[in-house]
Computed example of a mutant assay.
Amino acid sequence: MTSSTYCSLCGKENYILQRYCCNCGNTLKTYRIKPNLTYQSLESLITEENKNKILNTQITDEVYTKIMTNIRDMGLMNLNFTNQDTTFDKIVKMTRQFSKLHSGKKWGVYGYYHFNNIVIDDDYNEAMKTCTLIHELSHHLYSEVFEQLLMYIFDSPKTDAIEAIVQYAVIQNPYYAIGNEYLAYTSEGYFMNNAMKDYASIYKLIEDNDLDMKRVGNMCVIGNAVAYDVIKILEAVIDKNLKQELAQLCRAYNLRPVVDKDLDNVPLITDNVEKGKIIKSIIVDIFNFFLNNDYDDELLFELMQGFREANKY
């Protein structure tokens, strides 16, 4: 679990999850390599042995912090704002540090996140598009936390199989999707003065799936816990001045805070070891489902194919 990789440019030793060399900033060749041996297929990933490996690997405070630092560093590397950049331009640049960004339309939504791509509808004003970007980027970062934790546990680079199983865990399962959505609303609300924080997608998930409300509450606690880390990651870019610009943008377009007494007051878990245990329990739950049930492997195959296509470019 302590593997290192060495920079091909300066020779500096780097932790395996680093995307860029900590010494010279060179892109590390092993960040998205495709090794011959490990976890290129769902059959090689979803095994009893790997489930036990997840259960038996301790996520210490140091490991959890390192994972968050790695993700934060992706957002900072070679990021430059100019005097000509508008507030919206800056959020666009930040988003592109982590994810691919496109314009497009999907009925009933301002934007969406799919296979490491964020799509937003350009017909809306800049304040609404900014809210949407932060919301969808938060989804991406939530997945990234799960993926990097699995990369650490399996001592593996990122693969399509790892991305597919995480996608299933945080989006396809309705309960875990609640945590994902709560995280996105919380992160967006923190930076955008709670504008557009109506929890609409959460209420829709509850209505469409007839979910148990006690478990929904637990998922909101999980989403709130990781939102704390996503906010810290984004604060490396959205400093005090940029946050003030975001507040001004909301006022300029008359976007006002939305209050929801039922969902706004969720307990906050800040202990990194506890958060690591929670994330592991979600992944183990998904592994158990696939190991112990007949399931639609066509969906998982489609997820893998989606990431394979997205990662070509």
Results as ranks from 00 to 15, higher is better:
Cys250Ala: 11
Glu62His: 10
Glu13Leu: 05
Asp229Trp: 11
Asn14Phe: 02
Cys220Arg: 13
Asn272Ala: 09
Glu48Gly: 00
Asp285Lys: 15
Glu309Asp: 08
Lys29Phe: 06
Leu28Gly: 07
Phe287Met: 00
Lys158Gly: 06
Glu49Phe: 01
Lys106Ser: 09
Glu49Ile: 02
Tyr112Phe: 14
Asp229Tyr: 04
Thr69His: 09
Asp260Gly: 02
Gly189Lys: 02
Glu62Lys: 14
Ser187Met: 04
Asn241Gln: 11
Ile222Ser: 07
Ser4Cys: 03
Leu28Met: 08
Leu299Asp: 02
Asn14Leu: 07
Phe98His: 14
Phe191Tyr: 02
Leu9Ser: 15
Lys280Tyr: 05
Ala252Glu: 14
Gln40Asn: 15
Val284Ala: 03
Ala127Asn: 11
Tyr142Ile: 06
His140Tyr: 12
Cys7His: 04
Thr38Val: 04
Asn254Glu: 15
Ile153Trp: 07
Val63Thr: 15
Tyr31Asn: 09
Asn254Lys: 10
Leu211Thr: 09
Thr95Phe: 10
Gln172Pro: 02
Asp123Ile: 02
Leu9Cys: 05
His135Leu: 05
Ser99Pro: 02
Val266Met: 12
Asn218Arg: 12
Lys261Val: 11
Leu234Lys: 04
Leu55Ile: 05
Asn265Trp: 14
Asp198Pro: 00
Met77Thr: 13
Tyr64Asp: 10
Glu302Thr: 02
Tyr6Asn: 04
Pro257Ser: 04
Ala310Asn: 14
